[in-house]
Structures are given as structure tokens and as C-alpha cells.
Design a protein around this nucleic acid. Structure first.
Lengths: 337, 337
DNA sequence: CGTGTGCATCGAAGCGCTTCGACGGGCTCT
DNA sequence: AGAGCCCGTCGAAGCGCTTCGATGCACACG
């Protein structure tokens, strides 16, 4: 491995000069800079990450904690992870991937060892046990998601409350009076991952204002679970004509079942999904949807973090306004017979 | 931050003794060990990652390079990434996430800077430009995927050739004579990501042996692309009754279209998919499938890597045997009229 | 009883970098 | 012309750890 010292010797300058060329923290004459840069290129020098981290107490690494489960929201997670990684690179940071498995210990380990300068946490629960640690540490962090108490924390998330409201409005505007929310799996509610509840609250309160009647059913993904759920909904309220679906893996089963029961989408029943655009456009019916802006969330999280690392800005909550795209799965409510 | 020296002072021993307690590289008396361990716990000591990396020239980090695209095989990628991360942790390694974006430069940067001790590459093309770099460096690496020339490389992958053969056999056994492969998007073939071609070759050669007639059509995901592809298939060979689908995002559209055309699955048409079990069981028809063993691949890659890092084992190719699970989407070929 | 052996521990030398203070030489200003 | 300044560069200290000899000690052996 080529070292700084070798580059310095090759360029005929001292080690510190090379370091300053690299960091730009002191002015260097144009001539010297060029000589050093040429030496770096010729020798194929790469600064040693460990030495740099030790000397500067900055690792230039951001830790990203993703949920361990692969049962939910996979495309969203993946998109966020990729967006975080590419955006972090533009600021000179690399991304360390952590799974939720280690839980709070991972936070301790990473902050304690200086492995990462900062962290981004996904899949935040309302009363997440990692939060006290984050508040206690010096290291900046950003949550993707919204816990119950956000004091002292920076959070980025889709405004799921407004999302729910938007879905309700859209269906109301089309003349639907009886709607149903097909939610995430019961486990998601039990874990109190806030987004599902916030969506529901949004739908609920707007529905009340608009005079819609609302049913809510959590639902595991898959065909069988969806069949049961759907049967219960139509059983309880046969007049239901509008659906809001938050669970990605329930979308296709829902469409298939409706088709099978002879209910046409969007002529008889309208469906609004909360999912990434990609999912909405690849479904068997192009879905009217509120997109989950995964990339934007990832990028925004990195920007907040980098700002904090550079000494700017305090904790705040950054809720992204939802946008609804009308596609082929929603239309005017059928004229009641 | 607590340092080794502080722990040493607290425990009344020298720094090197603490280090040896931590690493176990020299024998330490039981009493001393306990005293040191108590001090570590009391002070909440975490070894500094940078210092450790510098002194030992080992970062205990494995780099994982994932494809930048989120257009293909997302659940598989995600599952692999998670499996790699959790498995790596059991060996004391963390995982650094890299996207393909930087290309070969990422390999140079990471190996050159000592940021990672080893790397795992996904989405390997037949003639990948990163391969020469991997062969040239001292650092161990494992490919998930199979390039054209594997000399000097360690590779882990599903045996896609055997997978294709297995699909053909299954359909043949059920009495189908005319089958079609609905492949990945044309772009995947153009990039020469080997797996798609290997699957096709497998289906093709086994079909020939078994006397099946075969059509192959690449297909973008989504409903529209699938509609066009399917129309062309039935146009060219109306007697087609068996499908092998490799493109996840084509599965639901295919099922929806078949339904819409009044072709029942599995009574009229059989479908065999190559996808993770989770996708197969959550589809609107439970799919007969060859599972892509994402977790196993991830775990296996880590094991190979750790073995190499510990000085064992040279390069080799580890192809995982495919397993076909019969579910509800395949059945006896219809009696020809 | 002297010597050899092995165990438990210590001290010190780095690992490759950043950063601070110092220094010399050209300016500008008066 | 001398004082003061800034610019560009250097040397050295030190970041927190690992690791290699060296050391001291207890024990067994002949």
C-alpha cells in the first residue's frame, strides 16, 4: 500500500503538505499542488481509512439501520437504502448497513466505537427503545419515520395523516360514500410503527368531515388473508365501493379477488393505494395512488445529517406532503340501484 | 470516549494486557481477565474502530456492492443484503453498502483505502469490468452470480442451468408439449447478466431432449409489456400451454391476462416461476416455482469470505442446486381437442 | 541447588494520518 | 527602511490500538 509519506517523498514535499493538498484546509501554491496531485495519480495513492479516522476522529461513514423483516415494504426499504447510499457518496460518506437485529446495542456499538459519524434509522416505532440512546449521544441522527415524542430528534417522513385525508377526499369527490381501509398486517399495528396508524387517523377524520362511512381492516399480505378480509368487509357493509390499500402485498390479491367476484375496477369499485409509483404502475390495474417518495426520503435524510455534521441546523420534523396520482383504478361511484 | 488506557488504569493492568484480554491472542490469568472485563463493563468501553483498523490493518468490514437499479429482482437483492449483514455480524464483521454507480472505482477505493477487508459483488455481468481488479488485489472477494471466466474467483449462485432444466422437466412430466419462457427485460440480456441466459439454455437443452417445443420472449415488467408479449406468443403458437416466468414483475400481469382471456390456471395453462418463495406464495395464484434461495446465497457468500479471510480455501464456484415446489399454478396439460 | 521451561504481564514501537505551532520570505504600510 | 502581515511550507506530536520482544516468576527436572 502506498502511504502519504511515500507520496510526499515522491513529490519532494513534507507529509503535512500532502495532507493539506488533500483536505484543502490550508492554502497551497498552485505549483506544489500540481506536483503532489501528479504524484498521487502516478503512485495510485488512496488515503488509509483507519488512519484517517483515528487522526481526525471522523470515519466518514453513515450507519443505516434497516428493519430485519423482509415481510413488509421491501421495495420502499430498498429504494431508501439505495438513495441514501448514492446521496451519501456525493458528500464523501460511505454507508454502513445495520439490521434491526442487534437493536439498541447496535447504536451503542456504532456510536461508541466511532465506526460511524452519524446514523439513519428506519422502521421507527412510536416508543422506540433506541431513541434515548440517540438523544444521549453527540452523534447526529435522522429518523425515517415518526415516533411519538420527537423532541431533540430530526425526523423525515411522508405525511401519512395528510395521505389518509387525501385518499378519503379523492374517493368522496368521486361520489363514494362507503369506504374501507385495508391496512397493514396486525403485527404492524401491534408494533406501533406509527405510519399505519397515522394513515388511518387521516382517513378517519377526513371521512367524518366529509360524511363518509369507514371500515378498517388490518390485513396480512397474500391471497388467502385478503380473501378473508374482503369477505368480512362486504359482509359487514355490502355497499362499500371505495378502498384504500396500504399494504403492498395485498394489492394484487385484492384486484384478483374483486375481478373474480365480478366487481369491475374502477366501474364498480375504486381502489386507492399508498405505495411507490413503481408498484402502482406495474400492478394488473394501473393504480390511483399516493406515492411513497422513498428516494426523496432517503436523500432528505442524508441532507439533514450532513448539515448537522457540518454544524448547521438543529432537530426538526420534515414531513413530506403527499401527492395523489389518478390512474385507472378509481372512478365515479356507481349509481346506487 | 473511554479508551483502552483508561480501562487499563481502572483495572490496574497495562494497556497490552487489556488488548490481549480482548483479542485472546495470549493467555491471561482468570483473575486478571475478570478484573479487566469488569472494568470494561463499568466504563462502557468500546474499542475505537479506526485505531484498531490502523494498528491491525484489518477493518472488520465487508463491502457489499449491490446493483443501482431498483427495476429488477428487488426482493432478492434485499434478502441477500440482509442475510449478508446478519451473517457477517456473527463473525464480527460489519457491512459497507456500495451501489454499482461508482463501478470499478468503488473497488479501487475500497481496497486501496483499507475501508473493507473483503467484498461481495452482486449483479455480476458475464464480462464484468470489475473482475480484473478483483483478481489483481490481495483482498478476498466473492461474487454472487457467475461471470464467463471464473478463474481465480469465488462465486456463489443458484444453478440457473439446472433450474431451467427442472422447469422444462416439470412441464414435460405434466404432458405439456409447447412451452414458452417469459424472460427478463431485454436490457438484462443486453447487459449479459448471465443468469437469464443460463436459465434459458437450461430450458432449451432439456426441452430438446424431452421433445418440447419452445418459445422465448424477453419481457419488461408490467401489464402492458406482458400483454404484448403474451399476444405474440399465442399468435405464433396458439397451442402453448406451459409457461416459465423468470421476471418477477411479469408474474401478476401474466396471471391477470390469462384470467382475462378465459384461460384457467392450472386447468388450461400451467405456470412455473423462478422467484423467491415469498413471491410465489403471495401471488394471486400460489405459484409452482423454483425458489431463488436468496438467504442461502447471502450466507454462503459470507462463509466463503470469512474462510478466505482466515486463510483457508482458494477460489471455487459454488452452485446451489435448484428445488422446485409444486403449488397451484401447474397441472396436467389439457387434453388436446 | 542451579538451570531450563512456560505462563502471565509489561513497555515501547509503530500503524498512517491530521493538525498545531513555528518559520522564512515576500508583501504592504507608514 | 523597518515593522507587521500573510502566505506557503515544515516538523513534531499524538490519535487509540496491536504486537513483538523482554521480563519476572513459579515450577519441574537432573
Amino acid at each position: 500500500m502506498v502511504t502519504l509519506a511515500e507520496v510526499a517523498r515522491h513529490a519532494g514535499v513534507s507529509a503535512s503538505t500532502v495532507s493539506y493538498v488533500l483536505s484543502g484546509k490550508r492554502s497551497i501554491s498552485a505549483g506544489t499542488r500540481q506536483r503532489v496531485e501528479r504524484s498521487i495519480a502516478e503512485l495510485g495513492y488512496h488515503p488509509n481509512a483507519g488512519a484517517r479516522a483515528l487522526a481526525s476522529s471522523r470515519s466518514n461513514i453513515i450507519a443505516l439501520m434497516i428493519p430485519l423483516r423482509t415481510d413488509m415494504y421491501v421495495p420502499v426499504m430498498m429504494e431508501i437504502a439505495i438513495a441514501v447510499t448514492t446521496r451519501a457518496r456525493t458528500h464523501g460518506y460511505d454507508v454502513l448497513l445495520l439490521t434491526g437485529e442487534e437493536g439498541p446495542d447496535a447504536v451503542r456499538r456504532v456510536t461508541g466505537s466511532g465506526l460511524a459519524d452519524a446514523m439513519i434509522l428506519m422502521d421507527v416505532e412510536l416508543d422506540d427503545e433506541r431513541l434515548p440512546l440517540l438523544r444521549a449521544t453527540e452523534r447526529p441522527s435522522v429518523l425515517i419515520g415518526l415516533p411519538a415524542d420527537t423532541t431533540g430528534l430530526t425526523c423525515v417522513d411522508l405525511d401519512f395523516g395528510a395521505t389518509g385525508a387525501l385518499c378519503a377526499e379523492h374517493l368522496a369527490m368521486l361520489g363514494h360514500r362507503d369506504i374501507a381501509v385495508i391496512g397493514e398486517a396486525p403485527a404492524v399495528y401491534e408494533r406501533h410503527t406509527g405510519f399505519a396508524e397515522r394513515t388511518l387517523d387521516g382517513v378517519r377524520s377526513r371521512s367524518r368531515e366529509l360524511g363518509l362511512r369507514l371500515l378498517h381492516r388490518p390485513c396480512e399480505g397474500g391471497y388467502d388473508a385478503m380473501a378473508v378480509t374482503l369477505a368480512r368487509i362486504f359482509d359487514e357493509r355490502p355497499s362499500t365501493t371505495g378502498f384504500v390499500v396500504q399494504n403492498e402485498s395485498a394489492v394484487e390479491p385484492l384486484l384478483a379477488l374483486l375481478r373474480q367476484q365480478g366487481r369491475a375496477v374502477p366501474e364498480d369499485v375504486s381502489v386507492v393505494a399508498v405505495c411507490p409509483d413503481q408498484v402502482a404502475t406495474q400492478a394488473s390495474v394501473r393504480l390511483t395512488s399516493v406515492s411513497v417518495p422513498a428516494q426523496e426520503m432517503g436523500r432528505s435524510a442524508v441532507e439533514h445529517l450532513v448539515a448537522r455534521l457540518n454544524g448547521r441546523e438543529a432537530g426538526e420534523v420534515d414531513l413530506i406532503a403527499p401527492r395523489l396520482t389518478v390512474r385507472a383504478s378509481s372512478g365515479p361511484a356507481p349509481v346506487s340501484s
